[in-house]
């Protein structure tokens, strides 16, 4: 089992939360707590980058929905990026592909920028000993 590894970076369109490892009923609360702490401004877009996510159960789906509710409450947008095929299939069964914008990757959003030089948002965290998720 891979531990959940969450990294937050900021892009011009809004924060990018990279989720790595397994998102299940044990770990999902961490993502929910972290997202609840994110400050979103109206019109921003919160991107959940799921490229490194290896497992997602119904608790993980709940965390995604909680993130959507958080974004909506801030009148911000939300998108899922690089959704693994298995999770995408589940999202389609439960109809969530209709209410989440789904992007091929976290850089697809217009004006988004992420990389080693990007600023960490408040509440940024990653599992000890694991490098922050960076994309080139």
């Amino acid at each position: 089992m891979s531990p959940l590894n969450i990294t937050v970076t900021s892009a011009t369109a809004g924060p990018v939360v990279a989720v790595g490892g397994e998102l299940d009923h044990v770990t999902a609360a961490r993502l929910r707590d972290l997202v609840a702490e994110l400050t979103l401004r109206p019109g921003q877009r919160l991107v959940l980058d799921l490229a490194g996510m290896e497992f997602c159960d119904s608790s993980g789906i709940t965390a995604l929905i909680a993130a959507r509710n958080h974004a909506q409450a801030a009148r911000a947008d939300i998108a899922l990026a690089a959704v693994p095929a298995r999770t995408l299939r589940v999202l389609k069964i439960v109809g969530l592909d209709q209410i989440f914008a789904i992007l091929p990757d976290s850089q697809s959003a217009p004006g988004s920028r992420s990389g080693p030089d990007s600023h960490s948002a408040p509440g940024s965290q990653s599992a000890p000993g694991s490098p922050p998720a960076t994309r080139t």
Partner: peptide, 25 residues
């Protein structure tokens, strides 16, 4: 509402999904 599609087993020995795509949680 977001549930996996039901299966219909026919008397002729076949089984097929009864799709209900797009139904939301």
């Amino acid at each position: 509402g977001g549930h996996p599609p039901a299966l219909v087993l026919r008397a002729d020995g076949t089984a097929e999904f009864l799709p209900t795509p797009g139904g939301l949680l």
